[in-house]
Design a protein around this nucleic acid. Structure first.
Lengths: 89, 89
DNA sequence: ATAATATTTAGGCATTTGTCTAAATATCTA
DNA sequence: TAGATATTTAGACAAATGCCTAAATATTAT
C-alpha cells in the first residue's frame, strides 16, 4: 500500500492515470500532454509502474503504457472499511 | 484531493486513522501508541486535520480527536470511476 | 554503417517532508 | 498564585522528492 499511496501523491501522476482511461498511449504522447520534460515524465511513469498501476510493452521504437486498475482494489477496500464501520454506530 | 492524498501518504498517519476507528482518543493517547515524539505526532494530527480527515475538540486539558470519513467519498469515487470504466470494454 | 527518432539513465539542485529538542500555551489542582 | 500535566509551536537538520540538462540505449530507415 505504501508504494501505491506514494505513486498517487502527485498531481501529474494522477493526471497520467486519468488520461490513460481514454486508451493506451506511448511515453512520448503522454509527455506531450504536460509542460514537463520527457525525462521527468519518464520518471513518473516508472513510479507508477513500480506501484503496478501501469504496464508497458515495447512496440518497435515506441513504448506503450496501459492502466492496471486491479491494484486499486486494496486501497478501495481500505477506504470502504471506514465507511462501512460508519453504519455500525 | 491534493491535501487528502498528501495526508494519506504516510504510514504513521494511516495508522492513526486505523486506531481511531475503535473510538476517539486524546492526542496523548495517540502519541503513546507510537515510538515517535509527541510534537511529531501533533504535527501528523495537524496534517490529518487540514485534510479534514480528523476533527478535534478540547475537553479540559485534553484534546480529543475523532474521524471524519465524509471527505473520503471524493477519493473513493475517483477510484471507482477507474473500476467502472473497466466493464465498458 | 549512419543518421534520426523514442525513451531512459545519470547526476545535480532546490523544495518538501518527517523527525527531534526546547520553549510556549492552556488547563487543572493544591 | 504555583506547580503539574497536556498539547502545540518554533527552529533545525537529514532524507526524500520533483524538476532539469546531458548522455546513453534501442529501434528504424536511408
Amino acid at each position: 500500500m505504501n508504494k501505491l499511496f506514494k505513486a498517487l501523491n502527485d498531481n501529474t501522476r494522477r493526471e497520467i492515470l486519468d488520461k490513460l482511461r481514454e486508451g493506451d498511449m506511448t511515453a512520448g504522447e503522454i509527455a506531450d500532454m504536460f509542460d514537463i520534460s520527457k525525462p521527468s515524465i519518464s520518471h513518473h511513469l516508472d513510479i507508477l509502474k513500480q506501484a503496478e498501476l501501469l504496464e508497458s510493452h515495447r512496440n518497435g521504437q515506441f513504448i506503450h503504457y496501459s492502466l492496471n486498475t486491479t491494484v486499486m482494489d486494496d486501497i478501495i477496500n481500505w477506504f470502504l472499511t471506514f465507511k462501512s464501520q460508519e453504519n455500525e454506530k
